[in-house]
């Protein structure tokens, strides 16, 4: 448990239910990403996930697919993204998490990625297409660089597998709220409480972050009692997209984060 206590990501769950926000790195260009991250932190994001744009993002719905396309069109690469994030590392206090597909990392080199991520001040990594039993050396390299690997569970994950995944997840456990891709806000969450109770039994003290389909303050109010933190991506990206220019995009992002924070309890009831 000392591992949990010292974990910079897990610490965000200590006295509150953190708001975790996702943006795609380089959407629509890295210059905006470099401004957006401090803006999200300032507005109240407790943890920030930065997506590594990929041509074939299997776990993502249309909003994040389009974001990745915009990022790729502006020439974003993993290498350039890490350089941008390194510039920010001393400017913000909020821990940064990289979320990306395994091919991006495999192509970059697993060991090289772990070292470069640490240099850029990355606290954690989420890879939605790298299941816990897949053959990959990455977990070893991440551990060497003291970067947390946050694992995902879904409503149809078996009890036995929940335990296996939870035991290898660091920082928190990413609970996918529904059977679907990101941004699927047309679906209701069936038996959310039962699902998270089941996960909690397997996860022990590891905090549970809930994401996929959380699209605004109303939804937040409905579900906030059950998880230890929430993750919002597609809805934030859609909101930012309604901004006509850079200043408006930043203003929209801040406003959206504030509206979500207002719907969340000030302190955790754990």
């Amino acid at each position: 448990m000392s591992k949990l206590k010292d974990n910079i990501i897990a610490q965000q769950f200590k006295d509150k239910k953190p708001l975790i926000t996702y943006i795609c790195g380089g959407d629509p260009n890295l210059a905006l990403t470099e401004k957006l991250i401090p803006c999200l932190a300032e507005a109240g994001s407790d943890l920030i996930e930065v997506g590594i744009p990929f041509s074939d993002p299997l776990a993502d719905g249309p909003v994040i697919q389009a974001a990745a396309q915009r990022a790729l069109q502006s020439g974003t690469t993993l290498k350039k993204l890490l350089i941008s994030l390194e510039k920010l590392r001393d400017k913000i206090d909020v821990p940064l998490i990289l979320m990306g597909y395994y091919n991006s990392i495999l192509n970059f080199g697993e060991e090289r990625f772990a070292r470069a991520a640490r240099k850029a001040g990355i606290a954690g990594v989420i890879i939605p297409d790298l299941p816990v039993d897949a053959a990959a050396k990455l977990p070893v390299y991440l551990a060497e660089e003291e970067i947390s690997q946050i694992r995902l569970v879904t409503p149809n994950t078996s009890r036995q597998r929940l335990q296996q995944i939870a035991s290898q997840s660091e920082g928190f456990l990413y609970c996918v709220a529904l059977l679907g891709t990101t941004g699927a806000n047309d679906q209701i969450y069936p038996e959310l409480k039962g699902y998270l109770d089941r996960v909690r039994q397997a996860a022990g003290k590891l905090p549970l972050g809930l994401g996929f389909g959380i699209d605004g303050p109303e939804k937040v109010k409905k579900i906030i009692d059950y998880p230890d933190g929430i993750i919002i991506g597609s809805a934030l990206i859609e909101t930012i997209q309604t901004g006509g220019d850079e200043a408006e995009m930043l203003a929209k992002a801040a406003e959206f984060i504030e509206s979500i924070k207002a719907a969340m309890p000030a302190a955790a009831v754990k």
């Binding site: 299997l58 395994y102 939605p128 297409d129 897949a134 149809n156 597998r161």
Partner: peptide, 11 residues
């Protein structure tokens, strides 16, 4: 080979 897929598909 292997199974590099979202967790939802594992079951």
């Amino acid at each position: 080979g292997g199974r590099f897929v979202p967790e939802t598909l594992v079951p």
